[in-house]
Design a protein around this nucleic acid. Structure first.
Lengths: 214, 214
DNA sequence: TCCTTATCTGAACGATGTGCAGATTATTCA
DNA sequence: TGAATAATCTGCACATCGTTCAGATAAGGA
């Protein structure tokens, strides 16, 4: 788990001329405002006002408004990975059943965060957070989610709960379809019930649930 | 095919006080501007200026800027469906091979449009184009893409090129994974090469390519 | 203590979305 | 045909926005 939670009271407290935590405070209240109204309706001045700070203050930490939104968005990658990590931590055991449950939990956590925080989810995969291909592999948070998925698939394979010939497609197929279903449901193109159907189909596709060694 | 192409010259032409095609012209130049700079950087005044029209003129056709963007976005649903329709029209034949090719072409057309027009693709699935669940089923364009996919899957099933037990998951699994991969690649979270891997995995998942009747 | 550096303010500028009164053109009806 | 009505667009105004920059304020080191 990586995302650090900073209590709002600490961020808003402002005894003196200097704020002390302005950068974190800007990110925190901007996140909250995006959460409520969507990134496309975020106002830098509103964020500053909320913190009792002049609008120019933000420019000491971010070159412009877009950079603030981008920075905010990147931090959400950690939040999403946190959700997934928490979800699978609750499931112990080394058998087929536990492996299946963990795989399903990863997808469900992803989906539930997306539907619970649609504005944050959209921002995370918007143009603001476009990831430079050159630096993609070095991005920790992105890899955290990837590694969780990879581990879950390895477990499924090891316990014999998965068609081995499907293993090479595991990560891309699972992530793409779970993300796609979440995005389509958040956008209203698919009904929420479609997600369970997707997960059932995905498990069947990977052969999860078959008897081991057949 | 449904999207109507209106030549720019016609839209810009303005002999008199009245424009004549303002609504279509607004949508067309707004689309072009979103295409270039992204929806988050669209300026209503810039669109008006480009057409030699006062900024207020737009308010006779759209209640506000967001409505213009939304209207613009909805029209893209037809464009995407057009691309898919064109792609499968090129593939004739009733056998297994043709059915497979059509299925693949549907996914590829989706992906290629997404990567060729990332800003339009993003807009189409952004908060601006959120679809009201109540009216979802009545939306033509959305259903056009869905129907194409459904037809392709039916063909695969009919020719025996697909595992029958996977049929119920076909639409959701295919659309979600193709959309998800496209979105993740456009956002830079996955490399472009991942798309072919996804399609291979998807075909294997649905059992496409097996010999008929086993 | 003074000096340097980091942090934030205040006022200003141009651009933006939007509302409204009125000008201009098209359309309808006698 | 001409006059009345409706549709369409302009011009101006206003509040708000992102952004810049000179200078005020505080913190930290010598």
């Amino acid at each position: 788990m990586k995302g650090v939670h900073v209590p709002m009271e600490l961020l808003k407290s402002r005894p003196n001329y200097h704020h002390g935590n302005l950068e974190a405070a800007l990110l925190a209240t901007a996140t909250e405002m995006v959460r409520q109204k969507g990134a496309e309706h975020l106002s830098l001045r509103a964020v500053s006002a909320q913190l009792g700070v002049s609008p120019s203050a933000a420019y000491h930490y971010f070159p412009d408004k877009d950079a603030l939104i981008t920075g905010l968005g990147y931090s959400l990658l950690d939040v999403l990975a946190d959700m997934q990590e928490i979800a699978i931590m609750k499931i112990s055991g080394r058998g087929v059943k536990a492996a299946r449950a963990r795989f399903r939990a990863l997808g469900t956590a992803y989906f539930e965060w997306a539907t619970k925080e649609p504005n944050l989810f959209r921002l995370l995969f918007s143009a603001f957070c476009e990831i430079d291909p050159a630096t993609r592999d070095e991005r920790r948070a992105d890899n955290r989610a990837w590694n969780l998925l990879q581990g879950a698939l390895d477990d499924l394979l090891a316990t014999g709960a998965m068609r081995p010939e499907m293993r090479p497609y595991g990560e891309v197929l699972a992530w793409s379809s779970v993300h796609g279903a979440s995005a389509l449901i958040v956008a209203g193109h698919l009904p929420a019930e479609a997600f369970n159907l997707l997960m059932d189909g995905l498990e069947r596709a990977l052969g999860i649930g078959r008897k081991p060694h057949e």
